Amino acid sequence: MIIGHNPVIMNIKKIVREVSQHDSTVLIIGETGSGKEFIAREIHRRSRRRNKPFVVLSCKDLDITIRQEDILGKIEEDANDILRKTGIFEQAGKGTLFLADVHEAPPFYQKEFISMFSQNKYLRIGSSSFTKIEFRIIAGTSCKRLSKNEDFRQDLYEFLSNVTISVPPLRKRRQDIPLLVTHFIKVFTDVNKRKFPPMPSHIFESLMEYSWPGNVSELKNTIRNLVLMSPDGELSTEYLPFEIKKHPLEYIKNYKLKDAVAEVEKFLIRKNLSRFSGNQSKAAKAIGISEAAFRYKMKKFGITKNNY
């Protein structure tokens, strides 16, 4: 279920209902965390393929953690047996394949994709016979002008964009924040068997005024931590990230100096790690300390490269 009453979101709901009834390719455009994969899953859930697999292929990981044989599958024969590796395409079967961050696919894979998709078949590594493609293709990108991107094949763009859905960032649909907050609180209280807490006005104001650069994903993670870390049946300001608090200095005015300094340090470390996509060297330089000192403080505050 797509949550929101914003006019753009209402139109997206209408498009999702329509495209779920046929197999056109769909290109979903939106900032990181705006809900592209969620919308793709909603299209799949409403379609005749709902009981078939929904498989995600992360294009930014191609040739890093995902190899060609991971996609196509592989067949090897030895004297005694035939060894078969199932690839992502085969896993998708008659379901839906979601190409996440498709704009980050290397040129080689872009060429392979348009060749296979346009011919509606692919060749497993080690096999001499083609396999028919029966899955639906939906792609997601954070590149707003993919059609103008010189690093992306125009023919692949045209193939993927039979239907285009543009998802607005959360900061441009603030009226939906209360609905999303209520939904996420209910999800995390139900799953963890906790009491549904009242929403303090100062926390609500902070959530409404924050810019949410990480969009719905950031809001979801914030509410999850707020629900799980606060006492049962309550929402405690203590567990609201420093940068989200409406008047952050007001929240630390009664802290001891060392605790107030620690809060500011944690804020700057997290903010600059996010700014530089986890690059510790650049983040350390931005706040004016050595990389060794930066790493020491990360360890001290329990900040990791995967959780900042």
Rank of each mutant, 00 (worst) to 15 (best):
R174T: 13
D81K: 12
T182Y: 07
I2V: 11
T96S: 07
N162G: 13
Y255V: 01
I223G: 03
E112Q: 08
I203Q: 00
I114A: 00
N279W: 10
I12P: 06
N221E: 10
K258C: 07
A79N: 11
L268S: 11
I177H: 09
T189Q: 05
E150Q: 11
R295H: 06
K305N: 14
V102D: 02
L156D: 02
R67W: 04
I66P: 04
V19K: 09
E77C: 03
C143S: 13
F184W: 05
Q21P: 08
A262S: 15
E134W: 06
N149M: 07
E18N: 15
I244L: 01
I29A: 00
K121L: 06
D23L: 07
I303S: 10
R48K: 15
P231C: 03
R270P: 11
R84F: 12
F301L: 08
V102R: 02
I244N: 00
V26S: 05
R194K: 12
I75E: 14
K195Y: 05
L207A: 02
E69N: 08
S166T: 14
A283V: 10
L180S: 05
K60M: 05
E243P: 11
K285V: 12
N272A: 12
V181A: 02
H44K: 09
D70H: 10
L27Y: 04
I82R: 11
V187L: 08
L249E: 14
G30V: 01
S118D: 10
N149F: 08
S58H: 12
L123T: 02
R45L: 11
N254W: 07
P231H: 02
I43D: 05
T32D: 04
E77G: 04
A40E: 07
S236T: 02
K148G: 07
A40V: 03
P241D: 08
G87W: 01
P200K: 03
I203N: 01
K271A: 11
S127T: 04
E209N: 09
E263F: 02
E150F: 09
V26D: 09
M10G: 00
G140H: 02
I303V: 14
M199V: 01
F135D: 06
F130G: 02
K258G: 04
P169T: 05
S20F: 12
K13P: 10
K172L: 12
R49S: 08
G302P: 12
K144H: 14
T96I: 04
V181F: 03
V187D: 02
N306R: 14
F188I: 06
N11Y: 07
V191N: 10
Y308C: 12
G140D: 05
A283W: 13
G30S: 00
S20G: 15
N51I: 07
N215D: 09
E243W: 03
K60A: 11
C59V: 01
I114K: 04
S34H: 06
R41K: 14
Q280R: 11
R46H: 13
M298F: 07
A286D: 14
I289L: 12
F54I: 04
S147M: 09
T141I: 03
I244S: 00
R49W: 09
R17Y: 09
E218C: 03
F196A: 06
N120L: 10
S128W: 05
K266M: 14
I289N: 13
N254F: 06
Q154C: 01
T25S: 13
K144W: 08
S115Y: 08
S230H: 01
I66R: 00
Q154N: 13
R270M: 13
F98L: 06
R48H: 14
R171M: 01
